[in-house]
Design a protein around this nucleic acid. Structure first.
Lengths: 150, 150
DNA sequence: TAAACACGGACTGAACAAGTCGGATATTCA
DNA sequence: TGAATATCCGACTTGTTCAGTCCGTGTTTA
């Protein structure tokens, strides 16, 4: 069905939340989980993963928590999704290590690989800050993000 | 992980195969399944679904089989995927009938909805014929498919 | 009539996602 | 120093979805 996992959703929400609440103190996983009503333990794992990927900085102990490791503008949705869900390929046979096992080289996925790159490009062009700047002023001119050529 | 189901892959492959083998006679599900080495019964179900959606025409009985209901140029990858996998939304909470159950309106997905539309647009712009015309002549100018604005 | 085909429901096994549990480690504060 | 609050991390359960199979029915043609 071509959809993100809930984990990726949670991760994006959490980063957005962190971007919206700049850092007088670090926010704990529980803080964010409570704000959105999502399972705290699950979110904690996600944030740990994002920390391992270098998108967040963590601080243990009392008054510890998480903060963005970079500016919100510097973190793309792609990085978040990639960190949580791993590399994604729109084609089922990932053409990676073992290649495709279907007999005649599955010619479908060469064009679909371009679709894949397009999606990745779109996600790379969207930053956490874009997510945080939710209410776009009415008069703001739309910004071109991606132009796909085939 | 944001990937297509194998069924959708199979469906695209089958339509491509039908586009490449114009219709002196209809091709049976088994013919196509054998050509690609995929389970015949599974492919049969997929083709039945595509028939129900109006993308294929079927003919029962001996020497029966399937043929494209429209020209290959008129069938988009989007239609195929939509027919097999149903409507796809990149966001987990589909914002559809029941809305999002997360407490503060999940502000993440408004921007992601645009990503979703972009993906759909890309898939809509790719036809079965595009898949069949695998070897693109080297000199062919790239064609702009989609421009996303946010 | 019999073979070859589409049609369609029900079922199984495997994989995956979502969430939980329990414990270890690190840091701060009283 | 000890308690409280965190991150950290692996193992586990549960539910759902995917992929594939089985089997019976209907339809067409030789």
């Amino acid at each position: 069905m071509l959809k993100l996992s809930k984990k990726a959703d949670y991760g994006l929400m959490a980063l957005k939340y962190l971007a919206e609440h700049p850092e007088p103190v670090a926010l704990s996983a529980k803080d964010i989980a409570d704000a959105y009503g999502i399972p705290a333990q699950l979110l904690a794992k996600i944030l740990q993963q994002l920390t391992k990927s270098g998108l967040l900085r963590s601080h243990a102990g009392m008054n510890g928590g998480y903060a963005l490791a970079k500016e919100a503008r510097q973190i793309s949705a792609y990085e978040v999704i990639h960190s949580i869900d791993g590399p994604f390929f729109i084609t089922s046979c990932t053409k990676g290590a073992n290649g495709c096992d279907l007999t005649p080289s599955c010619t479908i996925k060469e064009p679909l690989a371009r679709v894949n790159e397009t999606i990745a490009g779109v996600l790379k062009s969207i930053s956490i800050q874009d997510l945080a700047e939710q209410e776009q002023p009415a008069g703001t001119p739309a910004q071109t993000l991606v132009t796909l050529t085939v």
